[in-house]
Design a protein around this nucleic acid. Structure first.
Lengths: 203, 203, 203, 203
DNA sequence: GATGAATGAGGGTTCATTCAT
DNA sequence: TATGAATGAACCCTCATTCAT
């Protein structure tokens, strides 16, 4: 496929640079100049590919989320049972590739911008809806119908809370600690499944 | 004590104005000019009382947190049992005076700034430590020693996650929904206590 | 003659697009990008045919003026008497094809640029000289020699003034009103000619 | 009166500087930096007094027009007859203080901007209405009612046309030539008044 | 204590122009 | 011939901060 034209390459590079800058500088500190510099390009070219700073960072968020989604999808493909699928979602969200201080902080920064950027809000909404949908599907087989909502909220809230914590402090929580917490929750909330085993299986 | 000098009054007003501006404008959009305007003062006077913009917002965070702390303390004073105290902490964090979209968003905004502002980080750390301390004290009587850490983390994470959710969307969660989720967690995690009753007692 | 090579066609298209853009955007707002877009071409090709933005708009002015000149020439060819010729010049300048708000405004825009663009000034000078020459030729048979200068100035000034007016406001003057004003002037300035008849002949 | 505060002084200076820059640079070339430099101030202070570049130049136009208006009013006060008043208006518009290449060019530049700046359009409209009103008042005693409109249009159009001409070329017309043209028009259009005498009276 | 004048750095954005393909 | 990638300069504007009054 000839889709990988130079323009697509550049967009990818710049998007990536933008995300990296976001991690160290925050939204206000993330200037187009810095993004250009990190990408080894000129300031002008950034606006050549993205109409505005806002758009650039919207694309950055969309992209970073796509990566996380792929991580989750990849793990879900391997899952065979509902509990496997549920755990795949959780593990995907705390995979070592994503659950890093820098990425959590970039995510936090973008979250703080959501109420002031409708487009960002839309993206955030889509992300959220997808995760809820995945969770509910897995949960139907595990908890009574009138409790799926409660558990879905519980899981998403815990995930967000743990990401927030790592976004706040580099030593906030480690991935194993986060997973342990999730397992702790599931063990008590959906007790018939041997969640503990899963955790111990982890290398 | 005659501490309430005019200077103290001004500082209070400005701090409050800063917090209000933060709620609607976010960190990047919160200019000193807007704060001054909201306080009905001149731009110059703001920096007369606070050395810099950063300091102003640090004080704003400290202040807003003090309010939340007072809310919790007030409720804890009325509590008689460990479970009362535990629930007091939770209810304090979701009292209708604080658990509003604007406030949650301002809090989120400040959180996103934490990694770049050591002073803000320190404040955040103090806040967090106090809550953990309160929780642990209450929990010692409710769960085995080797589980207090787990439950403390679970509760704080859920609280943060719920605040985050309301900070992201005005219709993210309501206070009753948030409390219901907390009760759901406690009911399964510390089953010997009739948490449900507490929830139903609420007006 | 095989002069109509593809290059000549492109130049014509671009020149025309430039003029159209000028009408809606003014000089400052008329970017090469917009011209290219209106011509359905790429930005690069515009500067391939015209060395610079300035040159492009100089050509646009030259072209637009050529159109107006052709209009006048066409009418003069049909004229048989000096007064016919004089009126042909005037009618040409207020023909419905040219005396439009957009065109008058584009013209005004270019006029405002004249003092800063020597080339534009030269073009303007040529245009002006030709009209004066035409007018003087026609006037020699209609007014005493020592008054041709006065009347020439009067007519050109009125024409410019009326163009300016339509350039300023879309509803500044209509073509009939403009022609009526010209006839009013001529009726009093060269009273022996029945100018009014001419006006009434108009459909 | 204490109205001449420092702010008023600065505004005056900047407005004046803006107008001067406009004369040499045109609208597009008139940058805030140049205005600040000409006023011997910093770029920041310009935006401190005028919210935007547009506003600055709107004020400049308003101001420059006020000067012209005062010139006309001053002369009208001395006028005793309708023809005196009519001539006062005309002389005011060609007084040596205003009818200069630079000023006419600045005026032309602003005119070219009118269709794209509603505020500028409003100012322009007010100016125009005032002049028409003045003219009509004076003309009621000099021409039959059904002709005042025609003559008003003739005079304003000639004035505009002559300003345009000087705006286009430094040697376009001189003030005496312009006045001579106006007298030529009036002599033929309102023949009962000895306009020629007026012209000769000029020092 | 309080004002607001003044600065200057820096940010986003636009755009003419150049150049490799 | 034609494209569009790339640059860099410039511009408008915002804002924290300083300072004279």
């Amino acid at each position: 496929m000839g889709l990988t034209r130079i323009s697509e390459i550049r967009r990818r590079e710049l998007r990536h640079a933008a995300y990296e800058v976001l991690q160290t500088e925050g939204m206000a500190g993330a200037t187009i100049e810095k993004v250009a510099q990190k990408a080894g390009a000129s300031k002008g070219i950034v606006l050549h590919y993205f109409k505005s700073k806002q758009q650039l960072f919207e694309h950055a968020m969309r992209h970073s989320n796509a990566l996380l989604r792929d991580e989750v999808v990849r793990r879900m493909r391997l899952a065979r049972t509902p509990e496997d699928r549920l755990w795949a979602i959780i593990e995907g969200n705390f995979s070592t590739a994503f659950f890093t201080p820098a990425i959590c902080h970039a995510w936090l920064t973008l979250c703080a911008e959501v109420p002031r950027d409708p487009q960002l809000a839309r993206i955030q909404r889509v992300i959220h809806a997808r995760m809820r949908s995945n969770l509910r599907t897995a949960l139907t087989a595990l908890v009574p119908p009138d409790q799926t909502e409660n558990v879905t909220l519980g899981i998403t809230t815990l995930i967000d809370g743990l990401w927030l914590r790592l976004g706040l402090r580099s030593d906030g929580v480690s991935a194993p600690e986060a997973l342990a917490q999730m397992a702790d929750y599931l063990r008590h909330r959906i007790p018939q499944i041997p969640w503990q085993d899963r955790l111990e299986r982890r290398d």
